[in-house]
Nucleic acid binder design. Structure first.
Length: 152
DNA sequence: GCCAACGTTGGC
DNA sequence: GCCAACGTTGGC
């Protein structure tokens, strides 16, 4: 089993949205970055766990744990002209973008903030904290995962 | 709202 | 294939 961190702007999709429908599966759609796409398509599998990270908000940080309920499949929104994620250049027979399904495992007791994480030596190599990182889906090692949980 | 750091696009 | 222009992300 692998561990991940997925970013979302809470104004678009937040932990509250996930918590509003317990047990419900959510399509993690709209990722339009090739590096993240490759992770969604090739690496992320059913049973993997992912931290939900709130970005571009008052207190950026990790807010919850999600579980992957379906591995990479063609992101339906790329074919939907009504979707903000529509991509007219994508071909149904060779989809350009992929998504996964997730459900909320649990909300953390508090936000593990970005600045707080920066102060901890065991998180020195955390992908999220590297300079200029803009990936919206990124790997988290098991030790990093456990350390972040220990901060709760 | 600012701006640094990217990624993407497109002319050549 | 290079690279300038442009668009986006995301912390502050």
């Amino acid at each position: 089993m692998n561990h991940w961190l997925m970013k979302s702007e809470p104004s678009a999709f937040s932990i509250d949205d996930l918590a509003a429908s317990p047990g419900k599966t959510t399509v993690w759609e709209g990722i339009r970055n090739y590096q993240a796409r490759n992770l969604l398509r090739d690496e992320i599998q059913v049973g993997d766990l992912a931290y939900l990270y709130h970005s571009s908000c008052q207190l950026p940080g990790v807010v919850g744990v999600m579980e992957v309920t379906r591995g990479g499949y063609a992101d339906p929104s790329q074919f939907d002209p009504a979707s903000r994620y529509f991509d007219p250049r994508s071909d149904r027979h060779a989809p350009r973008w992929f998504c996964v399904d997730v459900k909320l495992n649990r909300r953390l007791g508090r936000v593990i903030g970005l600045q707080e994480m920066r102060t901890h030596e065991p998180l020195r190599d955390l992908a999220l904290l590297q300079r200029g990182n803009r990936l919206s889906v990124m790997p988290v090692t098991k030790p990093e995962w456990d350390f972040i949980l220990s901060l709760e």
